[in-house]
Design a binder for these strands. Structure first.
Lengths: 159, 159
DNA sequence: CATTATATTCCATTATATTCCATTTTTATC
DNA sequence: GATAAAAATGGAATATAATGGAATATAATG
């Protein structure tokens, strides 16, 4: 059974909550119900199991000293600090997005939302932005494929 | 459970006090209620647990001798001396910012404030300045991402 | 078509935030 | 040095918002 895969369409309730599908709930339940919400620069909110997020942030030694010395480093602490927050998935499979995160992802109460698997967790996109993102990924792969074909022609010996 | 993460919106009361959210209060309570307020060159005020701040400053060897010799060093001592001050979080989770610090961060009584986690403590930003900071970080990440996508196209063989 | 599962809405409860007031401390003036 | 005024602090109360749960409606399945 593949975990954190697939695509669900759902909506934000009046209080800014999102109900996950049973499939996604189960994927999280298997790794403990503590998750981390993390705002992505792409304009969506990722939901990772806590251990996945900790693995992302593990290699930061001696943060206090570096924070005193470097503004760039403080910005990186700030980015991950401000845009990451622990949450627990409720018994009914709901997660509450903080208002600031909701705004970051362009989610409005009552609006259409996509819950997108990314193999290590899920991402929450406004439907509108997801369609654009999807288009961009496809176009990128198309161009990449074309270049690959060209370079295959220019090679003396084929693969 | 991640500590010192997330983003809260609150306001400065008529007496220049800020009420921390229960989540942030708990993070501090776990490390002792003594904190250090420290003005950042970015134009905000950081609130660190005392042990974090001491770790920042512990690696300054032989200050007396260096102070005699270097203006740069004296300025650095001055920066941390003048712009750092002990405080205790009250039983109701309030901290009082000294008027000079408030001014440094552009905070006015009654104004909107963001309490921003940075993984080792929190930062207090005027809402206006935080939105700018956020925009800057986002734009930086966006440009970085675009370059990464371009270089992905130029690679002969994909990842 | 009947039954089961899922989604959505609504309501009660709890928690949080803001405001207001009383007390204490400080400062200025007499 | 004493008294009064102002400011700051701490605490409590009220209003607002968030949370959890249940019920109903909708969709999917057999």
């Amino acid at each position: 059974m593949l975990a954190f895969c697939g695509l669900d369409r759902c909506s934000v309730d009046a209080n800014g909550r999102i109900k996950l599908s049973p499939r996604v709930m189960e994927d999280f339940a298997r790794r403990g119900s503590d998750v981390v919400l993390h705002c992505l620069p792409e304009g969506a909110v990722a939901v990772y199991p806590e251990d996945i997020y900790l693995a992302m942030r593990s290699a930061v030694p001696d943060p206090a000293k570096r924070a005193a010395e470097s503004m760039v480093f403080r910005r990186s602490l700030r980015r991950f600090g401000a845009w990451s927050q622990s949450q627990r998935i409720s018994a009914q499979g709901r997660i509450t997005l903080p208002p600031e995160y909701r705004e970051h992802a362009g989610l409005v109460p009552g609006g259409d939302v996509m819950v997108v698997g990314n193999e290590i967790g899920v991402e929450i996109w406004s439907r509108e932005r997801w369609l654009e993102e999807q288009k961009m990924i496809l176009e990128h792969e198309r161009v990449k494929g074309e270049r690959e074909m060209e370079s295959d022609l220019e090679t003396d010996r084929g693969v």
